[in-house]
């Protein structure tokens, strides 16, 4: 059970890191939101079964990724809207 939980924590950490990186790739923020959500669910599950620093780091990075991607992603609406109004 602890080994499985460790795997979830590692997955959460990796997904959290990727979601943070996605902020810098325009529409990649959509992918960032999806990855951050999966990272959060896995991180919470790992933290609940066997609390570890890695699980906490995964949750924190996923929260940062989710928040930042949400801001960046919603900024893209304005870009699309602006293009639509020009055409």
């Amino acid at each position: 059970m602890e080994q499985q939980s460790n795997g979830k924590a590692i997955a959460s950490l990796i997904l959290g890191i990727i979601s943070v990186v996605c902020i810098f790739f325009g529409y990649g923020a959509l992918l960032g939101i999806i990855l951050a959500v999966i990272g959060l669910v896995l991180g919470i599950s790992a933290k609940k079964t066997a609390p570890s620093g890695m699980a906490t780091a995964g949750i924190v990075l996923s929260i940062i990724g989710l928040a930042a991607c949400a801001i960046a992603f919603l900024a893209c609406i304005a870009c699309v809207g602006a293009l639509a109004s020009l055409s």
């Binding site: 928040a67 949400a70 801001i71 960046a72 992603f73 919603l74 900024a75 609406i77 304005a78």
Partner: peptide
């Protein structure tokens, strides 16, 4: 005020307000 500019980055106020509300 749809967007603000912060150190060269464009930040949408809508998303920012949602994040502030969540915090």
């Amino acid at each position: 005020l749809p967007v603000i500019h912060f150190f060269g980055h464009t930040i949408a106020m809508y998303g920012l307000m949602i994040v502030l509300g969540a915090i």
